[in-house]
């Protein structure tokens, strides 16, 4: 169901004039007075989608107006936010989930949006967590051994990632660069295919997300390192990259934003509601089920974080040759 009030062209001609004037008269006072739509760039049923649906549920109770999640998947999660930035009114009734690709794609290719100008940041929420893993019967037991192996056998160490230009691919290439070794990248579609390729012995290692945890728990594959700043609660015995001497923290952070030019007072109302919803025990449970950490940041911090992230992405992608050339 679309409750977007972007009524233009023939739509405007057909719409009752009363409805339009009502929409125009709304300000921060009395917000929200009608349903709010969260645009979700990932397909239905994915981790962030399910979590946002539970958040929307909680926000509905907090704000007293229905909050609905609308999927607009595609383009690595960017089609939804890009569409919102171009079409939605900055009235707070249409906001979007912002994955890291919104900041990364502009570095890689020509896109329709300016990541630093076209959005009103609201809140930073969480991120996906990543690990490096090998098969349980692999002679490689630690991350250091993996790097040592790559040093002795240049290009022989093959690893699966969920695709080129994903945080996992970029992370592995930066690790290789830092350690002065060369890995052979074999991109699969998503972490699940990577797990299957690793288990079937088609690659020697994988860089993947939480999809791999059950296989680690079952003892089929061995986690070498977690890419987070702290050890993962679900894998307490796995050291972080920093613990094994690699000065990196990689994850795929995401938050929420609206179109540019939103009234700060409305941003505040939305921020407070999302924050409160994130603290709801039910939504915390859903988030934990999908192995996503709580990485709350307020509006100002999030805006600063994004500016820094964009610069960081630029230098990362340039150093491994994935930045756009024109």
């Amino acid at each position: 169901m679309k409750r977007r009030d972007v009524v233009k062209g023939l739509g405007a001609a057909l719409a009752a004039p009363a409805l339009i004037s009502k929409a125009a008269a709304q300000g921060a006072a009395g917000f929200p007075s009608k349903p709010i739509t969260i645009i979700m760039g990932w397909p239905p049923g994915s981790g962030p989608d399910v979590w946002h649906r539970s958040l929307a549920d909680a926000m509905t109770r907090i704000l007293g107006q229905p909050v609905v999640v609308e999927n607009k998947a595609g383009g690595g999660g960017t089609i939804g936010p890009a569409h919102m930035a171009a079409n939605a009114k900055p009235d707070g009734y249409t906001i979007a989930h912002i994955p890291i690709t919104v900041l990364r794609f502009p570095v890689m290719r020509k896109v329709s949006w300016d990541p630093l100008k076209d959005f009103s940041w609201i809140v930073h929420m969480s991120g996906f967590q990543f690990i490096t893993a090998v098969r349980a019967d692999s002679p490689i037991k630690t991350k250091q051994e993996m790097i040592a192996f790559a040093k002795d056998n240049p290009g022989k160490l093959t690893y699966a990632s969920p695709g080129s230009g994903t945080s996992l691919h970029i992370g592995m290439e930066l690790i290789a660069k830092h350690a002065g070794v060369q890995f052979t990248h074999v991109p699969f579609k998503g972490s699940i295919e990577s797990v299957a390729a690793l288990e079937g012995g088609h690659v020697m290692a994988m860089a993947g997300g939480s999809e791999a945890y059950p296989m680690v728990a079952a003892g089929n594959i061995r986690a070498l390192a977690a890419w987070t700043d702290k050890r993962l609660p679900s894998l307490p015995d796995t050291p972080t990259l920093q613990e094994v001497g690699l000065p990196f923290v990689f994850d795929s952070p995401y938050g929420m934003a609206g179109p540019k030019g939103m009234d700060p007072a409305i941003v505040k109302i939305l921020h407070d509601a999302i924050k409160q919803a994130m603290e709801d025990p039910k939504t915390i449970e859903v988030r934990n089920r999908f192995n996503m950490q709580d990485r709350y940041m307020d509006t100002a911090t999030y805006a600063r974080f994004n500016a820094e992230l964009f610069e960081k992405e630029k230098s990362y992608l340039e150093s491994i040759g994935l930045a756009r050339k024109d």
Partner: peptide, 12 residues
């Protein structure tokens, strides 16, 4: 999800 369009206020 189907677009509600101009009827959005009525369909709620």
């Amino acid at each position: 999800q189907l677009p509600a369009g101009v009827l959005a206020p009525l369909l709620g």
